[in-house]
């Protein structure tokens, strides 16, 4: 009886989505991971995301892990690697939706989201990416220094 239970569950996991959908919203890509990440799915997701960055010229990526109930060392490694790869292609990654129990376990466990930004939810994630891309736009066309110059003169008067 019990073995059948395990087997049918295994079947379901196998049949679960074979791809993680990635959506584009303006300059950003949004991927919401809703199913347990196994190795094959994780590697396909990495590849799909990088392909999408290339096609869409996205400036930022948001990975939503609200639906993930366990973040082990494997998933952490996949997320950290994916973010690093995306960064090489010019897209900043923000991971959103870390639940309290996940944060507690991650810290006790001792793994780290090295060099990845995290945010509470989608809204905060988008805000972080917008601020980041705005900063880049300002500095690239020199308006940033101009603004700073103006405020300096403002202080003097």
């Amino acid at each position: 009886m019990r073995d059948e239970g395990v087997n049918s569950r295994q079947q379901r996991i196998r049949r679960a989505w074979d791809r993680i959908p990635i959506l584009q919203v303006e300059d950003y890509l949004l991927a919401s991971i809703q199913v347990p990440l196994h190795d094959e799915l994780a590697l396909r997701f990495q590849r799909d995301l990088l392909d999408m960055i290339e096609q869409s010229r996205a400036k930022g990526v948001i990975i939503d892990i609200t639906a993930i109930d366990v973040v082990d060392s494997f998933i952490t490694r996949i997320l950290v690697e994916t973010a690093r790869m995306a960064s090489l292609m010019g897209a900043e990654t923000v991971i959103v939706g870390l639940r309290p129990e996940i944060s507690i376990t991650l810290v006790e466990f001792g793994v780290e989201f090295e060099n990845i930004k995290t945010a509470l939810d989608l809204e905060h994630g988008i805000k972080i990416l917008k601020e980041k891309t705005l900063d880049e736009n300002l500095s690239s066309n020199g308006r940033k220094s101009q603004i700073r110059g103006n405020s300096d003169t403002g202080d003097a008067t």
């Binding site: 395990v6 569950r9 295994q10 996991i13 196998r14 347990p36 196994h38 190795d39 094959e40 109930d69 366990v70 973040v71 082990d72 309290p100 129990e101 996940i102 507690i104 376990t105 006790e108 466990f109």
Partner: peptide
Amino acid sequence: EYDIVVARVEAKDMAKQIGFDIVDQTRIAT
């Protein structure tokens, strides 16, 4: 490696049934 996911799902279910809180369920599953 699919079996890793199965083990984790089963352990979490069992922990929940026994009465572990969500943080302990997550620790056990991890």
